[in-house]
């Protein structure tokens, strides 16, 4: 219980998930998920493939529908009401494994699109904000290029900047480095570390255990659609409780 208390960065709840269940047809992908994320927390979700990690965070911004249970994001309860869903989505940024930049728009247009159309920000202001975030991810010189002209690492940094332009209160990362060449992983992780240091609430599905050790204040291990174990990174890596976690860690840290 004291561990739980230490994990808290603040008392303000950012996301609360209660007894959430999801099925694909008859396949039970997520089982009785209970999770409370506090404002400013950095959570890494690990687990074998098919364990439901991605599905879990995709439920948070309603890219996937959950069939049972309750999800509350930043004070708004996720229901089938489209207005609520759009509100939550504009507060929650998401970064995808395959970047999903809009190939028909320039980098700058990718960044300003949502602020202009969703937030109704004036164009000049949106561009100013966009350039600010492009500088932050260290590629302001690419603003007028198209996504197809950028390397994978650069594209992923643009994708992060695109989410940040909406000034989200929470960021979700769905395996952001899995589709990248090894030498590009670092530049994306550096961007994420910087973001974490600024106090952004983050949920990352990732296999980068170094990142988890360095940045996370909680690591969640999932298997077969359930949260098997969660703990501070030090405890999690050095003193895993469940056998399943031990096996997983031995496999990914073993070489």
């Amino acid at each position: 219980m004291s561990a739980q208390a230490q994990m808290k960065v603040s008392d303000q709840v950012a996301i609360s998930i209660e007894n959430m269940n999801k099925w694909y047809g008859t396949f039970h992908v997520l089982r009785d998920i209970d999770l409370t994320v506090y404002q400013g927390e950095r959570i890494v979700i690990a687990g074998p493939s098919g364990s439901g990690k991605s599905t879990l965070i995709r439920c948070i911004n309603a890219l996937e529908e959950h069939q049972k249970g309750r999800i509350e994001v930043d004070g708004t309860v996720l229901s089938s009401d489209l207005k609520n869903i759009d509100k939550i989505r504009s507060e929650v940024g998401m970064v995808f494994q395959h970047f999903n930049l809009f190939p028909h728009l320039t980098i700058l247009e990718n960044l300003t699109l949502a602020p202009i159309w969703v937030r109704k920000t004036p164009k000049a202001e949106a561009e100013e904000v966009a350039m600010h975030y492009l500088e932050k991810v260290k590629i302001p010189e690419q603003a007028d290029k198209y996504p197809g002209q950028l390397s994978g690492g650069q594209q992923q940094r643009v994708a992060i900047a695109r989410s940040l332009c909406m000034k989200p209160r929470i960021m979700l990362f769905d395996e952001p480095t899995s589709a990248l060449d090894p030498e590009m992983i670092k530049e994306v992780l550096d961007t994420m570390i910087e973001l974490a240091e600024e106090g952004m609430t983050m949920l990352c599905v990732t296999h980068e255990m170094g990142f988890a050790r360095q940045v996370a204040n909680r690591v969640i291990f999932m298997d077969a659609g359930q949260i098997v174990e969660q703990n501070e990174p030090e405890e999690f890596f050095n003193n895993p409780k469940s056998d399943r976690t031990k096996l997983f860690l031995s496999q990914i840290l073993g070489h």
Partner: peptide
């Protein structure tokens, strides 16, 4: 179109028409 384009648009909070 890859599904990711729909998801990216959704995740930014754009509504259906947008």
């Amino acid at each position: 179109l890859p599904q990711g384009q729909y998801e990216a648009a959704d995740s930014l909070g754009l509504d259906y028409a947008q």
